[in-house]
Write a protein that binds this DNA or RNA. Sequence first.
RNA 1: GCCGAAGUGGCGGAACGGCAGACGCGGCGGUCUCAAAAACCGUUGAGCCACAAGCUCGUGUGGGUUCGAAUCCCACCUUCGGCACCA
Length: 817
Amino acid sequence: MTDRYDPHVIEPKWQARWEADGLYRATVDANRPKHYALTMLPYPSGNLHIGHWYAMTPSDARARYMRMKGYNVLFPMGFDAFGLPAENAAIKDGIHPIERTYTNIDHMRDQLKSMGTMFDWEREAISSDPEFYRWTQWFFSKLFQNGLAYKKHSPVDWCPQCQTTLAREQVWGEDRHCERCGTPVIKKALDQWYFRTTKYADELLDFDGLDWPSQVRDMQTNWIGRSEGASVVFETESGDQIEVFTTRPDTLWGATFMVLAPEHPLVTRLTTDEQRSAVGAYIEAATRQTEIERESTEKEKTGVFTGGYAINPVSGERIPVWIADYVLMTYGTGAIMAVPAHDERDFAFARMYGLEVRLVVRPPDSPGLNGAAMQEAWAGEGVMVNSGPLDGIAAGKGDGQSVKAAIAWLKEHGRGEGAVTYRLRDWLISRQRYWGAPIPIIYCPEHGQVAVPDDQLPVVLPEDVEWLPTGQSPLKLHPTWSQTTCPACGRPAERDTDTMDTFMCSSWYHLRYLSPHFEKGPFDPAEYDYWMPVDTYTGGAEHATMHLIYTRFFHKASRDMGVTKGPEPMLQLRNQGQILGPDGQRMSKSRGNVVDPDAQVSQFGADTVRAYLAFGYEWSEGGPWSDNNIQGPARWLNRVWGIAQPAGSAAEPDATTVQSLKRAQHIAIRDVSDDLEAFKFNTVVSSLMEYTNSLYRFREVAEGSPSWAEAVDTLVLLAAPITPHLSEELWSLRGHPYSVHQQAWPVFDPAMLKEDQVEVVVQVNGKVRDRIMLPPEAPESAATAAALAAPRVAELVDGKTPRKVVYVAGRLVNVVV
RNA sequence: GCCGAAGUGGCGGAACGGCAGACGCGGCGGUCUCAAAAACCGUUGAGCCACAAGCUCGUGUGGGUUCGAAUCCCACCUUCGGCACCA
């Protein structure tokens, strides 16, 4: 009689042993192939939730599998420890963010250890440690010195709840809300630091060599929003130049007016005295509108004539210049040429204000159409008309078509050229908050913006600050902190009092893991050369257009600054889905549907929770938590425990039994390996369950025999990535040397799958009517004969000659009559 | 409006163009038990049928390709994610 399976005894026991032995320490070993497995690090909120388990434990299973396959695996963990919640809590209850953050980290580290993950804790990196953010600041300085960081005064997104500016990526949804707190953002004009992400727009569009989900690639591609066209220069009557961007330069002959954004710098100069009050009132009204109101596509188009005129550079015609809020200062040049006949928005505007609509692309089906008669804009194909040199050319972007011809014409006449515009904006990284890495810039009356010299980094965040809900960073209110001297001239100067977007920390944390205590640089180059790039990166898809763009930018910029190597930081990316509450809704405290992983672990043990999270969902999809469904994996673990107890010794069973036992064993090896490889954790567990079930069927005839021992050992090994504690305990009970996690992964032998006879389905006209036994490689003639001889088939064929017979060896015969 | 993903039993979910529903939950029946729980064994898509054999239907809807379609193609519906006056 063996002891009951008790995870509460074996799990802490093995966790302590693994830690004491440093079993998961990863060190550079040039003789072994490396595998850098990375999973997104948590924010130290105070408690791990089930979503962390869902993200991390399958990732851990795969890292363990790679390790058993012979790779030298680096699987680190750390904390993205700067950020608003800690600071907001400080304002509320006075507990210092440092205290709260590090208390939370201590607790969460223990929770992470309770998962039974193979994290190498000696490589832990915490982004709020001065030895970490020293290098975050160093990266800022590097970018500044290389012209990739700059300060600009401009209207920016401000979250009134978080009391700070946000990057464009961090403003979400139709109502333009803050990604963190959900509050709609407002516009403020402020001096802020930016990184030149747009410089890398084209390179960021290139995913060559990356094994990333197409959804993420598509989202990034859409986000970057490359669009090809031309820039065209219009001249005003007063001689000013207005540059516009258009994707349809071929329709230039149909441009009957221009529209500028209300904020456009030339508006004042263009506006005539008669129009000045109307224009002023319109601009006033536009500024008062919220971003949401202004950018609503439902809204009717409004605008005001400036009184000024420009010259259409192709026709020489005098066309009126209007302002309208449907033209955005933040895209292109903030000015457009309006071609009402072929643009929906321009058409609506022209009809509203009675402006001329001139057809320049004649649709194929409407030979008599003219601008005045049009009911809607025509954006389709056709032939160019009313367009001078372009007349008769087919409208389109292809070779020999109108767009290319128009660009050639513009170039030839010096009025414009081919151009590309992106939707992507530069990354705004200033934050008006305390709990972040200070921006290492000093403002000197003499020398302007001066980077803090590397040997004076880090610029340490002062601890003696006051928590006031003023909407100003405590750094700004600190009496002395910002006062310093200029590194260039030594005269009194001031520090920047903003801190950096915490997405900066996560843009390079994977490099700090390489050598978290290295003092000569952000990472030890020897570690970098061995481990980088990250081979497998796992995490949530919600980071597609934030972290995952930033970190690619960071890597490419760092490469150009000679810091990193290679085109990309992370080769393979996989996203897990989300675990919902048992009610199918997103988990939240207010709904009361939050599943606490600690409670599940104390009820079932970590291995069961791991197995359930792997088994219950298609990993990339996620789904609702179920207290019922976890019973399945819980029972399975008990069954593994029961079948894998040491079993004395017995003679081999008959050869047929041995053969089918080995067959089951090798099917399991094949399926579990393939599915772990492919992140299909649910079928990994179901294959293990099937194999366990078949061992129960063999138990009576085979238990104790050498084949049985091998079959059971194989189960213990195959389960080790999913249930590391259970496998370790069973491996030890079965008398094998520690540790199961240092064993080689079982090797699949296809020869073990060979069978003398296989069941072949016989179809008549595509419907299954019978089954016959055949050798797997039976020739078609024999298979056909056997199929036709099958009683049910003979009956249905009824003496007729089959019109056709389809034979798939080892699978089916389809008789068509 | 644009880009993308997904629709399969009561439920979670499986299925290289080849036996739909693996594996599990739940249900039902049984073994064990004084009994219950646990554990173990069996069974479980729907319909026709007393039962079985057998047949029919069945992967969001409608078409198509194919000897054969959950899978490929076309059109549509629904849900979800992202973007959206982007010139």
